[in-house]
Amino acid sequence: MARLVRLYMHYAGISIRSQMQYRASFAMAATGHLVVTGFDFAALAVLFRRFGSLVEWSLHEVAVLYGITHVAFALAEAFARGFDVFPAMVRDGSFDRLLLRPLSTAFQVAASEIQLMRIGRLTQGLAVLGWALATGGFSLGLAHWLLVPLAILGGACLFSGLFVLSGVLSFWTIETLEVVNTVTYGGVEATQYPLSIYRPWFRHLFTFVVPLACVNFLPGAALMGMPERAGAPEWCLWLAPFAGVLFLLASLQVWRVGVRHYTSTGS
């Protein structure tokens, strides 16, 4: 384990150094990313300005959910983005090279691409979250404060799991299967807002199939001190983020099946 951590740091160092070779264009990309995500929140503020509230939710409350989602997604993008570019590795055969090495393939794929550029979204997400928590007038105890990183961690795991799943599909098909991406990016878009505003089928999709509610809406409601809005027993809300971790572990099992399929078809 210690060896893997050291190795991961080494990979990360390499990735960062090679991105730093193009320092100016990195700075541009990161700034661009920050601006794009900044516009996104500005648009949300514009809507609140016009409509006052989103059903029972205030801008601050929505901003908490928005911040958790974006921070979690930025972390997943930074650390699991390798799975997103992975279909190209299968197509051009460079995945074979990973199989030639005495390391787990999932580890190598994850370590192959660490995108610093995502620091733009991360910064914006943290800023929105920090602003909302500081000025939203929530009464937060220590447990609530602990729930914030837990929800973020669960979310990062869940989004990473989705990246793994979309990567796995490329073992079976070379056609870009956008279905998973639809769920991933659609999930980010959807969980910026409280899940309770959506129609039932949509709520169920993101609670039971892809449990994004568990890492965002449910713990969010608990940490803002309004568990009654979540429509679930309170202990559930506190444990919900672990669903994200379980989702990632399950995705990695699917990954192993995919690798086995790959080595028996060599597609």
């Binding site: 060896r3 990979y11 390499i14 150094r17 090679s18 090495r101 390391l103």
Partner: peptide, 19 residues
């Protein structure tokens, strides 16, 4: 199998760790 943007020596270092 070398890392495109890095000096050769750094690829060698990483391979040492991988193996």
């Amino acid at each position: 199998q070398l890392w495109w943007d890095l000096p050769v020596a750094e690829s060698f270092d990483l391979l040492r760790e991988i193996y």
